[in-house]
């Protein structure tokens, strides 16, 4: 018996702005992602990759179509309901995903679990930071960490709640090649440990090749899908 898909999107559209200034970002996306699958999203700038990821991760409401993520009907939810739906289920790593400056590395990683009401948030945060090699940086603030270290914290924050899905939008975009490589290795390692479905936006062909499936967007539509 096959498990239900992690993501099921039908006819997904996204339009931003109103009236004459309205812009169609997504023009009818059909996408089904299996549980545990790793998915690379490619496409030129302006193709709608980030917007698709925003909709799939519940950061933005679709303008039309249907969307079920981790068994929940995202299309019917308002922003607060989407936020609640994200708790503990979806981890997000962005290129410039800021850590909260007034919080230590440990506190930053603990926040999503605290929001989800998980009692052992601090212990799990500590364990996750140790897993990403930052056990010696628990009490450091973001301003005291290097770019690579900050992204490790961000990864730990995304994976600590043991989410069902992880979305990463160019997670190495701000990093040098060597550090970026380390981050990618770390991301995939954590994903393997948690069994989460991973969707990653990247321009890096080598990174894309590591994924089970490559979906290419163009002009708000899926141009090609290696898993189709």
């Amino acid at each position: 018996m096959t498990s239900p898909p992690a993501i099921e999107a039908r006819g997904l559209t996204l339009t931003l702005g109103e009236g004459g200034a309205a812009v169609e970002i997504l023009r009818g996306i059909d996408l089904s992602v299996r549980t545990g699958e790793t998915l690379a999203l490619l496409g030129p700038s302006g193709s709608g990759k980030s917007s698709l990821m925003a909709v799939l991760s519940g950061l933005e409401r679709a303008s039309g179509g249907s969307l079920t993520v981790a068994g929940q009907d995202f299309a019917a939810m308002d922003e607060d309901a989407l936020a609640t739906a994200r708790r503990g289920r979806i981890g997000i790593v962005l290129q410039a995903f800021p850590l909260l400056p007034p919080m230590t590395a440990l506190e930053n990683v603990a926040v999503p679990m605290e929001l989800a009401g998980q009692a052992d948030a601090a212990a799990r945060a500590r364990a996750e930071l140790e897993a990403v090699g930052l056990g010696h940086r628990l009490t450091h603030y973001p301003a005291q960490l290097s770019g690579g270290e900050q992204q490790r914290v961000a990864i730990a924050r995304a994976t600590a709640p043991r989410p069902q899905l992880i979305f990463a939008d160019e997670p190495t975009g701000n990093l040098d090649a060597a550090t970026g490589h380390e981050i990618v290795e770390l991301l995939f390692a954590r994903r393997a440990e948690t069994g989460a479905t991973l969707a990653i936006i990247t321009h890096d062909a080598e990174l894309a090749a590591r994924c089970d499936r490559i979906v290419t967007l163009a002009d708000g539509l899926i141009a090609s899908d290696s898993g189709a």
């Binding site: 936020a83 708790r87 800021p98 929001l115």
Partner: peptide
Amino acid sequence: RGGIATLKVLGATSGD
């Protein structure tokens, strides 16, 4: 704003 948006990404509602 950035911190508030971050908390929302992490699952905080407007009530939170």
